[in-house]
Amino acid sequence: MAVYPSVTLLVRDVKTSALFYENALGFTHVNDGLLLGAFGQSLRLMEGRDTVAGGCVILTFEVSNVLKIVDKILSHGGGRAEKLIGHEPLYLGLDGEVIALRERGIPGAERVKLIVYDFDGVMTDNTVTVDQDGHEAVRANRSDGLGVGLIRTLGVEQVILSTETNPVVRARAEKIGLEAFHGVSDKGAALQELAARRDIAIGDVLYVGNDTNDLEAMNLAGFTVAPHDAHSAILALADFVTTASGGHGVIRELADVLISARK
């Protein structure tokens, strides 16, 4: 996952500015002026400014929908700046800080009702260890378990669809509370069956895959996501490519995208 630097901003009133960033940009106020944004961004507010910043501070935030955020900035006391970054407009916070917005995410992701995950290369780094008795083991990322939980709070269904027959797939699925289908040879047909069984339109299904055996399913799903180390054919189909590689927080990153889309 991407790592963003923590930014400290001097403001006239921490409580007032915190409410602005919560309401306008969807930040969550943790404590003592610390706010967390949608894509791993953090902002610490400290009192210490008697006059407005006058545009001396430029903050860049990634958001899921720039137009929606602009409306919120303007309706919660912010304004438009006269400056541009290239051809992109800038905006003003309550203390004169300049705000730049970059759109990131999946357009329409608030419609997603079902997520189907490939296992190897998405929940794992696509490697396997084999002991002298032929027993296989894989590495999974705990942050993905947290991501599954966060997505569950949105009311989005999630399942695992894997071509592997290894019982480790089911074991990991049970650990994080997901239904798993493994040993699947035709992922496209399986995806259609999963959606039909749940009475969910295929256009409201998001598929996360990493290799060519996911092509058919990704061509059918309404939304597609791939780890950044996925096969080039999969990257070409993906609506969103995570900064995380397989097994290193793909689902946790996806959770931030889906949560941001609903704010």
Results as ranks from 00 to 15, higher is better:
191 L>K: 07
191 L>W: 07
102 R>P: 00
196 A>L: 11
178 L>Y: 13
134 G>K: 06
218 M>K: 03
110 E>R: 15
214 D>C: 07
148 V>N: 00
173 A>N: 00
213 N>H: 07
93 G>Q: 11
173 A>G: 00
147 G>Q: 01
84 L>N: 11
220 L>S: 01
103 E>S: 11
185 S>Y: 08
162 S>L: 05
106 I>M: 08
119 F>T: 00
114 L>P: 11
209 G>C: 06
212 T>M: 15
86 G>A: 04
103 E>T: 12
130 V>T: 13
172 R>L: 09
115 I>F: 04
155 G>T: 04
167 P>A: 09
220 L>G: 09
77 G>R: 08
96 G>H: 04
155 G>N: 12
154 L>K: 01
176 I>N: 05
189 A>S: 13
206 L>Y: 11
200 I>H: 13
86 G>K: 01
91 Y>Q: 04
144 D>C: 09
119 F>G: 02
134 G>E: 08
184 V>E: 00
115 I>T: 12
112 V>G: 03
129 T>H: 12
200 I>S: 08
84 L>I: 14
137 A>Q: 15
187 K>Q: 07
114 L>Y: 03
158 Q>P: 05
125 D>A: 00
153 T>H: 08
194 L>D: 03
78 G>S: 09
91 Y>K: 09
203 G>C: 10
185 S>L: 13
195 A>I: 09
146 L>P: 08
134 G>W: 01
75 S>T: 10
101 L>Y: 01
131 D>I: 02
81 A>I: 10
212 T>G: 05
174 E>D: 12
201 A>K: 09
180 A>F: 01
152 R>V: 00
137 A>M: 13
90 L>F: 02
97 E>C: 09
175 K>R: 09
100 A>D: 04
116 V>R: 03
81 A>W: 06
75 S>F: 05
95 D>H: 05
83 K>E: 14
87 H>S: 14
121 G>L: 08
139 R>L: 15
179 E>M: 14
187 K>F: 12
125 D>Q: 08
128 V>K: 01
107 P>K: 15
174 E>V: 03
94 L>W: 07
129 T>L: 15
187 K>N: 06
82 E>H: 14
155 G>P: 08
203 G>N: 13
206 L>I: 02
75 S>Y: 00
96 G>L: 03
124 T>Y: 07
190 A>W: 05
195 A>C: 03
136 E>M: 12
86 G>S: 02
163 T>V: 10
202 I>L: 14
178 L>V: 06
89 P>V: 08
147 G>H: 01
76 H>L: 10
106 I>T: 05
195 A>R: 10
107 P>N: 11
209 G>V: 02
135 H>D: 14
108 G>V: 00
146 L>Y: 11
205 V>P: 00
93 G>Y: 09
126 N>H: 08
147 G>M: 06
214 D>M: 10
144 D>Q: 03
103 E>H: 14
113 K>I: 01
182 H>S: 15
218 M>T: 04
92 L>G: 01
144 D>S: 02
102 R>A: 07
208 V>P: 10
182 H>R: 07
199 D>H: 15
182 H>T: 06
198 R>K: 14
105 G>V: 03
121 G>F: 04
220 L>D: 02
